[in-house]
Design a protein around this nucleic acid. Sequence first.
DNA 1: TTCATACTTCCAGGATTATCGAAACGTGGA
DNA 2: TCCACGTTTCGATAATCCTGGAAGTATGAA
Lengths: 118, 118
Amino acid sequence: MEERQALLAFAALAQETRLRLLRQLVIAGPEGVAAGTLASEVAAPASTVSFHLKELEQAGLIASRREGRSIIYNAAYPALSGLIAFLMKDCCQGRPEVCTPAVAALTACCTEVGEVRA
Amino acid sequence: MEERQALLAFAALAQETRLRLLRQLVIAGPEGVAAGTLASEVAAPASTVSFHLKELEQAGLIASRREGRSIIYNAAYPALSGLIAFLMKDCCQGRPEVCTPAVAALTACCTEVGEVRA
DNA sequence: TTCATACTTCCAGGATTATCGAAACGTGGA
DNA sequence: TCCACGTTTCGATAATCCTGGAAGTATGAA
């Protein structure tokens, strides 16, 4: 991920409603969630949610497809991984004191990762 | 790291000059860099740089101390780790397809991490 | 004291972002 | 063809952010 894209992604995440929307989409999985459902989940008017979804999509963090009259949004997992990797690579800059604790904290979440060699 | 702090951090990173400043500070290491030096490194007027440094500091991503007439800024490594961990935990949500690739990409940077058990 | 240096704060402007009702658009059913 | 439904686009308003010059605040040297 290049800087320009990362800047867009950070801007997209720097907003409460958008962060909530993204969370819902990550939880929902690859199948995705309809815009209307998201609107009621985050308790915001349809036009507001649409605005934020467009923002997240432009940042590359989510994708959408039409299905009947609904528009289904889903998290773009590779973009999320890319952003995390950007933060680590770009910020880590050869300094493991940044990354190592993060990865350690991670084992609490995705234990598989900690078990690469176990 | 709680959501509020993460939102501040994302907002802080979503700005070119600030991202550049933070990068310089991460590269510089714990000793830190004087505000004036940073200003010439990012080629921006002192007042602008000061504004952005304050922003980064309020987000908890950097810290400052006075040393003679200079003010030395340094990256807050634990906050950076915390942010990465937040992204992984919060966004990963038990979905290793997000975190695993990120950690894999990481081995190119902080090889020690990939060698936890090797 | 007085002065130079290193920053920060203040301030005004322009630019961007967020919100949400109203209107428009695409889709599918009758 | 007509209508209802799910969503987006438009438009206006309010709020927030970025920029950089000018003025103010610490610090240290003479």
